[in-house]
């Protein structure tokens, strides 16, 4: 059955309104969970999952292909490289032992890196499946 994205966008007013209302709060919650990872429960992975949920919610409300998953994937790889480099530069040579002042900074930065990496990564993975729709003809049962 031929369906284009405008058909989908017109569906489910409830979902659109609720997600539109929750969107900024979820963004705030995501960054709160990431940045407060070393004080309260939470951290990079959990906050990153909230960010990925945001991306998927955005897709559910308006399923246009305006999220460039190639771009997201590139950023994810950059953040992953930073995740691999930062401990190798800061943690493993023992700088945290000699300079205790940078310990909270290191924790915050690592949480942020992991959060964005996980958010982009899971978002790309889920959107990749979501956009995997073919033309309708292929999926007709």
């Amino acid at each position: 059955m031929p369906m284009n994205s405008s058909d989908l966008a017109e569906q489910s007013i409830v979902l659109q309104v609720v997600i539109g209302f929750l969107y900024p709060f979820m963004l705030l919650l995501g960054f709160y969970v990431i940045l407060n990872g070393h004080y309260t429960p939470g951290g990079g992975f959990q906050g990153g999952s909230v960010l990925a949920t945001l991306l998927v919610a955005r897709y559910v409300v308006s399923p246009r292909e305006d999220i460039n998953s190639e771009e997201l994937h590139r950023y994810q790889r950059i953040f992953l490289a930073l995740i691999l480099v930062a401990p190798a530069v800061v943690l493993f040579p023992g700088f945290l032992h000699s300079y205790p002042r940078i310990r909270p900074l290191y924790l915050t930065v690592m949480d942020l890196l992991i959060g964005v990496q996980v958010g982009f990564g899971v978002g790309v993975a889920v959107l990749r499946f979501a956009f995997f729709e073919g033309t309708g003809k292929t999926w007709r049962l």
Binding site: Q11, Q46, S49, V50, T53, V56, V60, F129, W139, L141
Partner: peptide, 19 residues
């Protein structure tokens, strides 16, 4: 987050397919 946020939204997006 994952169980009731991400997975639920993913299922909803999948349900939109064949409708």
């Amino acid at each position: 987050v994952i169980g009731s946020g991400l997975v639920t939204l993913l299922y909803l997006a999948a349900l939109k397919r064949n409708k």
